[in-house]
């Protein structure tokens, strides 16, 4: 059975519904959470998460985000990761940021490729936080080697060339690359474009887990009940 990870943008659509969504994830057996910290220039994100990021930044600041993150960690017993962009960490100071998110399992930086991980790794390691490695359909053999080195509990495989959201497909070549990394003992989770049960099924048939972002945030925009219904539907797949 593959792992299911849900991405939620911190304090979106409101601080209260974010926390209630975290509770739903805990109660419905979601395996891990990715908490997005918004950035003013989210180049890896599609329209929906970009718009949500701007709205969140208008209403909250970093202190609010870390407060909600710690509340989420109290509620959610599984692994919690923070996903954001390089400058949210760098601009504040890597060590200072790492201290503020103490206790999370890992950090995912959308614009930090394998070759620039060196800049951030030390600061996070001191707090026991993994820096999650990415692979993509464009990755070459040497990239896969690089990702395996020092990888934490999973490698994040970006399913497609493009931003978050959109459609989910996996071509043969990509499936081959996922297989290569798994063959070397790494757990690989797939994200970007995963929406429905059938996508989760497909992802979990070739990898160790699936991450849903845009569609989960869109669900929560409709209300916590709609979100709960959506998560319930996904979980049924894995039971």
């Amino acid at each position: 059975m593959g792992k299911l990870g849900i991405y939620l943008l911190v304090n979106y659509p409101s601080a209260e519904s974010f926390i209630r969504a975290v509770k739903v994830c805990e109660e419905r057996g979601v395996d891990f959470l990715e908490v997005g910290f918004p950035f003013s220039d989210p180049v890896a994100d599609g329209d929906l998460l970009e718009r949500a990021s701007y709205e969140t930044l208008k209403r909250f600041n970093f202190d609010d985000f870390t407060e909600s993150l710690q509340e989420a960690r109290r509620i959610f017993k599984g692994r919690v990761y923070v996903m954001t962009y390089a400058n949210v960490v760098f601009g504040m100071g890597i060590n200072a940021f790492a201290k503020r998110v103490e206790g999370i399992t890992g950090i995912i930086l959308a614009d930090v490729p394998l070759r620039e991980i060196w800049l951030f790794e030390k600061g996070f390691k001191k707090q026991g936080i993994n820096l999650v490695r990415f692979l993509t359909p464009e990755s070459r053999a040497q990239d896969i080697e690089k990702a395996l080195k020092g990888a934490g509990d999973f490698i994040y495989f970006v399913s497609k060339r493009g931003t978050t959201g959109g459609d989910f497909t996996l071509d043969e070549e990509t499936i081959g690359k996922i297989g290569l990394a798994r063959g070397r003992g790494a757990d690989v989770y797939i994200g970007f474009g995963i929406k429905e049960k059938k996508d989760v099924d497909l992802a979990c048939s070739v990898a160790d887990g699936a991450i849903i972002g845009t569609k989960a945030v869109e669900g929560l925009e409709k209300g916590v009940e709609a979100f709960e219904g959506y998560i319930k539907g996904l979980r049924a797949v894995n039971e």
């Binding site: 180049v43 490729p113 692979l135």
Partner: peptide, 11 residues
């Protein structure tokens, strides 16, 4: 440096 999504690195 090269602070871009991993997808762009081969390009």
């Amino acid at each position: 440096g090269q602070f871009v999504p991993e997808t762009l690195i081969p390009a």
